[in-house]
Write a protein that binds this DNA or RNA. Sequence first.
DNA 1: TTACGTGCAAAGCGTTTGCAAGAGG
DNA 2: CCTCTTGCAAACGCTTTGCACGTAA
Lengths: 147, 147
Amino acid sequence: MGSSSKSRTARSTAPQASAGRVLGRATRQRRALLAIIAREARPLSPYELHRLTHREIPSISQSTVYRNLRALEQAGEICAVSIPGQTSRYERAKVADRHRHHFHCRECDRVYDLKGCPGGLRRLLPRGFTLEEHTIVLSGKCEACVN
Amino acid sequence: MGSSSKSRTARSTAPQASAGRVLGRATRQRRALLAIIAREARPLSPYELHRLTHREIPSISQSTVYRNLRALEQAGEICAVSIPGQTSRYERAKVADRHRHHFHCRECDRVYDLKGCPGGLRRLLPRGFTLEEHTIVLSGKCEACVN
DNA sequence: TTACGTGCAAAGCGTTTGCAAGAGG
DNA sequence: CCTCTTGCAAACGCTTTGCACGTAA
């Protein structure tokens, strides 16, 4: 894609990872959050993450979860997964950076990573438009919910 | 908050006309709203819709816009377009029922209808999963914002 | 020690709802 | 007329923020 950032805000920091900012202190809360996201196979919502971290650190607040999600995202450690009509879920950046798409189960409301990507999206583009990114979300029932 | 709407079954209604409920009274507000949605080429947000209807009916409230959007959607007159990380936009059902995908301009934040659909999505599906629907959102810059 | 991170409470923001007044059919 | 719809304000759910204290480095 673009080799130089346009006239927008220059985010010139570490060129290697995805995002710019550097992660700050490794607090107990931040470590717990990251550990849970790392061990989980599917993207988790802030609500789920607060519930899970709360088991280890009962005093953890929702704001801490939100603040850390933002910090971790900016640091390129995690990545937000947006499902239409749903609140964002978060997963490890290593997983997300492989350019994943997602499946949303309408039964259990869980989100799963998918492999692969159908090409040929550029031909959907009207003339004069530029394509920077795309999102594909399949929905239906996951294996556990098909009966 | 875990769950959203689920366990719907009667999805197999008429492919084009009303989705269920019957539309009630044709109030000034409702007519204005529908007229604006009908004449506009792209899906509009509740905010935009309130702003536009407000020009014709200065007394119109936001709640009226929201209530009518819901009523019109249930009546099958309009259709919600969900863009990840964005509030829903609304467009005429006749347009939406043609199975459209959408383009979101990151510059001006507008949403456009696209034509066509890339096939081959079913091969992204894990074994045992069933596919009921899919959403594709391209993003970048629209013609007006490429500079 | 000294910023950065935390918990708490309050504020924001978009959306929904209760209620009494208003208007469509 | 009777009921549906409206406008207002308050409630709501999720997310962000101000503040003083706590804690990693």
